[in-house]
Amino acid sequence: MLKRFLFILSLLVLIVSPGRSQSGGGLVNYSPYENESEKAIFNQSSENPFLLLQAVHAKKNTSLKGYNKLVEKLDKRAKNKDHTKWFLGEVFYQTHKVLLKEYKKHSVFNDLLNQGLYDCVSGSAIYALMLERYAFDYKIIETDFHVFVLVNENGENFIFESTEPRSGFIHDPGRVKEYLRAFLPSNSQSNNDRNPSLGSLAQQPGEAKTIFKAISLTELAGLQYYNDAILHFNENALKTSLNQLAKAQKIYPSDRVVALRELLEQMDHENQELASR
């Protein structure tokens, strides 16, 4: 069933108009919120990615104890920020030491702040926030099934792979190239959102890689909603999945977000017709 669903969706994405997907915010007419905290954050934090990342499964009292501890530690070390490789290593390893305690697929940014649970989306988000704080030139890279952070300083590239606490800070030029090569599109269809999954399904051997693009922290918050929508779909919670996709589309109307929402809306409509017979 799931394989059939993914195949149908892959075909659907092929026919989504790029122009329409980029104006997808206009398709969002109603987006029910999980609670008042989410509603307040979602509608007031468009210019503050740190808050917007906290919108998914928002809590009234999010703990910032670990976050503030990390900032305090790194602020002290930032005096030696000119020692680029050393300081970037400190950012990577101190973040894991203080905040990133346990990898858990489909965990969200609030899980990271409150419990130390993270996945590639929330892990990359905290690294991007730290790199922005210390004015590094970085990019959040979205691929078909994964997100990571690429830093470029003084002509050198560094990888922040959040899911590898021991070896995820990659600075050797050869290893950096090897890492990037594993995610680069396998054909000329780069930057086309043709795959419906992110961090939720493992890539199958021989499957084409089509997405490799830099996104903003705000767009990453949209991907967090998208990822959560897939989780709820897999749990047969179609309505909740649609709610999450509506919010994902408002923040980041990428092709795969729009396509998945349109497909699930069609499924929901068909379910309602069957129920009314």
Rank of each mutant, 00 (worst) to 15 (best):
E132S: 12
F42L: 09
S186C: 04
L52A: 06
N236V: 09
S254P: 06
G168L: 07
K105M: 15
N271Q: 15
E142G: 01
N61I: 03
D255K: 11
A55H: 04
K79N: 08
S17D: 09
F42A: 01
E38P: 10
S200Y: 12
L131P: 01
F42K: 03
V149F: 01
L99F: 07
L64Q: 03
Y103P: 15
L52N: 03
K69H: 03
V91G: 06
D119F: 11
K105C: 07
E156K: 15
K239T: 10
K39F: 14
G222S: 03
G123A: 01
S23T: 00
G116R: 08
A214Y: 04
L274S: 15
L238T: 10
E142Q: 14
S200M: 11
D268W: 10
A202M: 03
L14Q: 08
T163V: 06
E270M: 15
F136E: 09
N35W: 09
T62Q: 10
L238N: 12
I170L: 09
I41H: 06
N29K: 10
K101G: 14
K73R: 10
S276R: 15
K39T: 00
Q204T: 03
A125M: 09
E270N: 13
A246F: 11
R175Q: 13
D255G: 13
Y225N: 09
H146L: 08
K104L: 09
Q44D: 08
N227K: 12
V16I: 15
S197L: 13
K60D: 14
N234S: 03
K105Q: 15
Y103T: 13
L201V: 10
L129T: 00
F92C: 10
R277Y: 13
L131W: 04
L242T: 02
K139Y: 02
L99Y: 10
G19P: 00
K97I: 00
A229M: 11
N29T: 03
K213C: 04
L131S: 04
P253S: 06
K69E: 07
L12E: 09
L64K: 05
K101C: 13
L231D: 04
L264A: 12
N192P: 01
G66W: 05
R166S: 13
L88D: 02
H232E: 13
D119Y: 07
A40T: 01
N68I: 02
D137S: 14
